[in-house]
Design a protein around this nucleic acid. Structure first.
Lengths: 241, 241
DNA sequence: CGACGGATTGAAGCACCTCAACGGGAGTGG
DNA sequence: CCACTCCCGTTGAGGTGCTTCAATCCGTCG
């Protein structure tokens, strides 16, 4: 129903359109473009694939390209000199990679799972955006949304306890990537190490807190990388502090 | 010299212009507008003043207005149900308040020091932005910049130690608000409590770490709310981890 | 089967927090 | 002018939540 709503406002495209069948057009920045404009846009943006673990952009690289994620999962991270790592966020299908006015990427982007992206040369992308106000607005909306999410994460990292962080994280996952068949199950492709570096914890702590939630019958582990929420109210309560 | 550079690209305005003499036009979003457009813009944006401690917008308030800070200092914060507080950022003169596509403000904005802002009704502001691509681009640039700053802060909160956080904070201050007369001195108007809630620490820890830096001759306290950097290299090193 | 990497569990340590006392500058009133 | 108070910041002592170090478990793959 949500998709239908989004689809209603989505400009229609033809069967032979290069973006026909794109599963995330209603989510991505592309969704703001009319058929012809989108065709022109996509002409500059070949699809590129990355395997799990591969790096899309390195921190400090010249920001020569921007990307739109069509499938898979990307992590944005930064490394301190001594090896400590912080993951600033995950990109899900439909998300945009390359919100910056700087010359260099500030964060490393790596594929967590096999991922496909549309890649656009930065220069051409900027020119194209300048000619398409709807796209520019959409980009601003995306940036504003990412900013709000990042600030929300600041609250988590600055003030929440380990169990509150885990609860918040599980809720976020349940919201963003519900498993396809059974709606009540959620699977997450990232490792415990990724979760830890995203939540500012150690993997042992992540493991312990997840076990603790399991023991308390708040969640049920349906696999190493999937779970089911048993007591949503309790989880909400925990996440809020 | 920096100001001169910025001023070169700044559209000139007349002596009788309502924004004539505005000290932050080269920093603010307004800087992207030509004289006439700026005049029209400012016609919708009266100046409003707040005293230290007063709230500009409450978390959850309908986002009816947006603001441009012309002088003073604003903090963006969020409160957890049990009173824990996290400050997501500080706004300095020239900064924009109201980057959001949501209906409600996600954070509370309070004046840390006496502050003056130009206030614009959100609706009119959006309409105006839609008619002025240069302003729209500037807003996107501002949002991208804020996003990068927020993500950098995520690294600090997630992975840095107390002394690294303090070092990073002092460097940020030295960068953003150098005291007017002597360039090597920096004063900061916020309390230890504000610093603590920004860095995810307790005030006692902030106090101890500052004392520690003072004892190590890395900084010199020139007052309760001002300091001088004695060993920049060491401070950089500490901040990096 | 044996080895490897990711995840879990246990025990001990430490960085930061909590609680509590003290200090010092600003404002007030005698 | 001093005494008093209040608020903010500092300092000290003890506690704890998460980390660190280490062992074990388990699914996967050669």
């Amino acid at each position: 129903m949500l998709m239908a709503t989004a689809a209603q406002s989505l400009p229609p495209i033809e069967d032979d359109h290069p973006c026909f069948g794109c599963a995330v057009r209603h989510l991505a920045v592309c969704g703001s473009l009319e058929s012809d404009a989108l065709r022109e846009f996509k002409a500059n943006g070949p699809s590129v694939d990355y395997e799990a673990g591969q790096t899309v952009v390195f921190e400090g690289d010249r920001a020569a390209n921007v990307y739109s994620l069509t499938s898979g999962l990307i992590r944005l991270s930064k490394l301190l000199p001594d090896g400590r790592r912080q993951i600033a966020g995950f990109l899900f299908p439909g998300d945009f990679l390359g919100i910056t006015m700087e010359e260099e990427h500030a964060f490393t982007a790596e594929a967590v799972a096999p991922s496909a992206l549309c890649r656009f040369p930065r220069r051409q992308f900027d020119d194209f955006v300048a000619d398409h106000p709807a796209l520019e607005r959409r980009l601003y909306a995306v940036a504003a949304h990412e900013l709000a999410a990042a600030r929300q994460q600041l609250v988590l990292l600055g003030r929440k306890t380990a169990s509150e962080r885990i609860a918040s994280f599980l809720l976020m996952l349940a919201d963003r990537c519900p498993s396809m068949p059974a709606g009540d199950e959620t699977d997450f492709p990232m490792s415990r190490a990724d979760i830890a570096d995203y939540l500012g914890l150690r993997i042992e702590t992540v493991s312990r807190e997840i076990t603790s939630l399991k023991t308390a019958r708040v969640i049920q582990l349906t696999g190493r990388h999937s779970f089911r929420i048993l007591d949503r109210g309790r989880l909400d309560q925990l996440a809020e502090g």
